[in-house]
Design a protein around this nucleic acid. Structure first.
Length: 152
DNA sequence: GCCAACGTTGGC
DNA sequence: GCCAACGTTGGC
């Protein structure tokens, strides 16, 4: 069954334009157990992804992507030179995983966090709940469809 | 297992 | 840059 997700990224680090240029990328650097578990346990090839710019001006949804490779070890956790290095990660116990995502489309206009807050249909979105900082969040099909069709 | 201290996220 | 909210760490 297709599932729906929201991925946050700081555009300074990796933007929708970077993904458009690269066509696909590995989603490295997730160091939160809940987000990891979503990737490891629930994500499958073909799942749909909303691409969200965080720490941006403004922050908001900027595009759509799709999962194109199931979870596998995040090798940056074992690379001492990486910003994402985790000394506890080993070959036998990589701890952290990543998936690959592929570019689908960039929205004609960013849908800002403020705009999202205005839609009653989205009032239960995890993103809009106070205090949630999860960088990978599940969406309902209704949420995904509604948002991805707001701007062509 | 509790919880204070610390680090991080991310909107503003 | 500020700071609220949250997750993690580590002493006990």
């Amino acid at each position: 069954m297709t599932k729906y997700w929201l991925f946050k990224s700081e555009p300074n680090t990796y933007s929708i334009d970077d993904l458009k240029k690269d066509r696909k990328t590995h989603w490295d650097g997730v160091r939160n157990y809940q987000a990891r578990n979503f990737m490891r346990d629930d994500m499958n090839v073909g799942d749909r992804v909303l691409f969200y710019h965080s720490n941006a001006h403004p922050s908001g949804v900027t595009g759509v992507a799709t999962v194109c490779k199931k979870a596998y070890p995040d090798f940056t956790a074992q690379d001492e030179r990486s910003h994402y290095y985790d000394p506890k990660a080993t070959k036998d116990n990589p701890i952290w995983v990543m998936v690959d995502i592929a570019f689908v489309k960039k929205l004609s206009q960013l849908i800002s966090l403020n705009e999202l807050r205005n839609y009653p249909k989205l009032k239960n979105m995890i993103l809009l709940k106070k205090g949630t900082r999860l960088s990978i969040q599940p969406l309902t099909k209704q949420e995904f469809d509604f948002i991805s069709e707001l701007k062509i």
